[in-house]
Design a protein around this nucleic acid. Sequence first.
DNA 1: GCTCGTACACTTGCTAGACAATGTCCGAGT
DNA 2: ACTCGGACATTGTCTAGCAAGTGTACGAGC
Lengths: 222, 222
Amino acid sequence: MSESLKTTSVPQAVYDALRESIVTSAEAPGALLTETAIAVRYGVARPTAKAALERLVSEGLLSRRPHHAAQVTELSRDDIEDLYGNRALLEEAALGILASDGVVPIAALSVHRELLEHARADNRAALARTDVEFHRALVLAQHSTRLAKMHGLLMGEIELCIGQVQSHQLIRPDEIAEQHQSILDAVAARDVDLAARLTREHIIYARDRLLQKYDDDHSEDS
Amino acid sequence: MSESLKTTSVPQAVYDALRESIVTSAEAPGALLTETAIAVRYGVARPTAKAALERLVSEGLLSRRPHHAAQVTELSRDDIEDLYGNRALLEEAALGILASDGVVPIAALSVHRELLEHARADNRAALARTDVEFHRALVLAQHSTRLAKMHGLLMGEIELCIGQVQSHQLIRPDEIAEQHQSILDAVAARDVDLAARLTREHIIYARDRLLQKYDDDHSEDS
DNA sequence: GCTCGTACACTTGCTAGACAATGTCCGAGT
DNA sequence: ACTCGGACATTGTCTAGCAAGTGTACGAGC
């Protein structure tokens, strides 16, 4: 007990670990997670595990019926469309605010550079993760706390979505990077309409690639 | 134990009761709510009270620092603008969807009739409550579950906002009812742009009345 | 052989109590 | 007047356990 830096609270740590294993699909969709199983896995008491599970349920990553074990949410095609439609709405608004202020957020810039690195190395898994981080950084940069909160809620499920459909397999790194650059340019140029339009197109583009992969995966069975 | 229908779970009941007393400003903004105090007030165990408090914190109705009692969130002028700005964004999108489908939701219609009753009786408190319910019903009627979830999150804080600024005092019942009717008409006529525009104007109108009252209340002190 | 009902195992719902860790505040000593 | 120390309040987390709901599998009856 000397090496642990006690970075956060115990339930937070359990939540983080559990969330990570869910969005990376280490826990398959539909997998059952009982409170006691989580408790023994991370060496915590059952109420602690329960708190982490309930939080994940409220964020939509887990589902549960009253007296049953929680299970990893299985996203349908409609869910994907819903998620990305609302994401487009929110990010379009966020980028509009950023562009009208003409402030290019430095946090997003550094993430963008990191993303370029991954693109050059053709590391698609890392790129998918950094892509999410880039969009988070953009939305966090504008001042509306509620917009950021709602966006965070959506992005949680979107990460799960990206994990379940292994969409990073068909990502085109150069296109992603280029689209991000265009958006940043529009913000710097204070072109509100362009920034909003490019953002929506970028997200719809991502959605379509996801849906395409989803359909491919689901065409052989049934 | 024969008359109680056991309508919901215990934490849910505590949550409901607590939420009610918060949004009605029975608990003044800034009031301290300790876990033990809530537990004894409702005759439940401390973990149960804790769960209810944590849920309210996650919804923004309560604030808390790590080892301190939770307290009722005090909304600032910026918070009001933020809440209503995002509310306009979401409801504009929701009404756009409804109008493009051309389906006037029956749930919203019945709430609208109830609202007309309150308007006729000039019961402003009930009207404010029904107004919120009307907007919830509208958003619930479109099919996007995420949009409804995010809207619900916002409306929680908005109810608190309405309670803190006693805004119902300066509501004009006839104007509210008329604006709602116009929106419903636009949806029935499948006029997407009009429905969206009227919705935004209606919300901005409500926001401005709220801000006006807020400024009046805060001009004498300081 | 099939259907129905019952009992059991699993899991959560909720409670009780305890101890540790932390933050606040007030008073004592300098 | 200022600093330091300790008491108090509050939450964080754990252990323990009972009650209640749900599904399943087994056995009885037809």
